[in-house]
Amino acid sequence: MAKATPRHTDPPFPTPPDPPEPPDSPNPMAEDNQRFQSFKEALIDKENALNQIYEVPKEHTNMEEESEVNNDTITLTEDEKRRLYQPWCLSVIIKVFGKRLTHAYLKSKLADTWKLIEPLTLIDLGWDYHIVKLSQVQSMHKILHEGQWFVVGNFLLIKRWEPNFVPQQSTLTRTAIWAKLPQLPTKFYDKNILENVGQRLGALLKIDTCTSATLRG
């Protein structure tokens, strides 16, 4: 009697399900077209944004209109004017004609020419105008009445300081000059005669001491 090992039978292998159908393959041309259209639309939107008319908000417009109506004017009292003007009342305004000089050079030349008893303070106003700020009446009198002054051969305009002086709007209407009378006979070196000559030229300010005393021709 033969002994046999029973034969082992494997279970049947399950059949896998059918794979799903792949989705439609993407169309690269369609994507590029969509991307191009988006970029074009962005450009159009940007152009429209740049070309649009800018409108000021109403609140800003109202503020500007109110500002123009009110004019934002600050009114000074007489006490404030006196306080503001007092430090400048002895000052003079100058301008060099025909030549533009640096601030340091002009200040040095004026100090050498005038030889004042106080330090010279020179302030640039623009348009070739300067303020010489003074604190001594003697200094102001010397500058105004003991010239005609020249700086490196150029005439120096001098006028008393005035409030609200605007260099750009300033116009020259008068200036102080020396009038020479060459070969005037000495018999006419008379105060009354010289005053009459001066009055014919303008408002007489001063007669040269040597001329009035007949010390020099």
Rank of each mutant, 00 (worst) to 15 (best):
K40Y: 10
F39D: 04
L90M: 13
G217F: 05
T15D: 13
A203P: 02
D32T: 07
F97E: 15
L201Y: 02
Q199R: 15
P26G: 06
I53L: 11
Y85V: 07
D10P: 14
L194H: 04
P14G: 08
R200S: 10
P87S: 07
W178I: 13
D79H: 08
N33P: 00
Q52R: 15
V137N: 01
H60A: 14
K95M: 14
V152I: 12
Q86R: 13
W114R: 00
I158K: 03
P17F: 04
E55C: 08
I123R: 15
G202D: 06
A30M: 13
G198V: 06
D112S: 13
D112Y: 02
D24L: 14
R7A: 03
L172N: 10
K99C: 11
R216N: 07
P22S: 01
N164R: 10
R82D: 14
F97N: 13
I123P: 05
D32R: 12
Q34A: 14
A104V: 15
L90G: 01
I123W: 04
H141K: 07
F188H: 13
C89K: 15
F39N: 05
V69W: 06
L205T: 09
D18N: 04
S170G: 04
L144V: 09
K115W: 00
H141L: 01
L215N: 11
M29D: 11
F36A: 15
A4L: 15
E21A: 11
Q136M: 03
P17L: 10
E41M: 10
E65Q: 14
E64G: 02
K3C: 09
W127V: 13
T211C: 06
W161Y: 11
K109N: 06
E146A: 01
P57G: 12
A42E: 07
C210D: 15
R7K: 14
F13M: 11
C210P: 00
P119Y: 02
G126Y: 08
K46S: 09
G126W: 11
K107R: 11
V137F: 03
P163D: 03
P26A: 05
D124H: 14
W114E: 00
D18A: 12
D190K: 14
F97P: 05
E118T: 05
M140G: 02
E55T: 12
P119D: 10
I207S: 04
D32A: 13
V96W: 01
P23L: 04
